[in-house]
């Protein structure tokens, strides 16, 4: 989604006001949970729906 919007991770981190390290945790799937406010900010910044950035993967 970042590539589609031609946006860098650092730029997104700055827009949604989280650290690049936390964005990296989100991207790698290591995060235990995501706040609605963070999800909302990401969707707003990337102009997309939560389903576009979330994916269910069976363990």
């Amino acid at each position: 989604m970042l590539a589609k919007r031609n946006m860098k991770s650092n730029e997104l981190a700055e827009i949604i006001d989280i650290t690049p390290a936390n964005l990296s945790i989100l991207k790698s799937g290591k995060a235990k949970a995501v706040r609605f406010s963070t999800l909302e900010a990401i969707c707003k910044a990337l102009d997309c729906q939560p389903a576009d950035i979330l994916e269910y993967v069976e363990d």
């Binding site: 989280i18 936390n22 964005l23 945790i25 989100l26 290591k30 995060a31 235990k32 949970a33 995501v34 706040r35 963070t38």
Partner: peptide, 8 residues
């Protein structure tokens, strides 16, 4: 604490 830190 870990869980809290990993809630972003």
């Amino acid at each position: 604490e870990e869980e809290n830190e990993l809630t972003i």
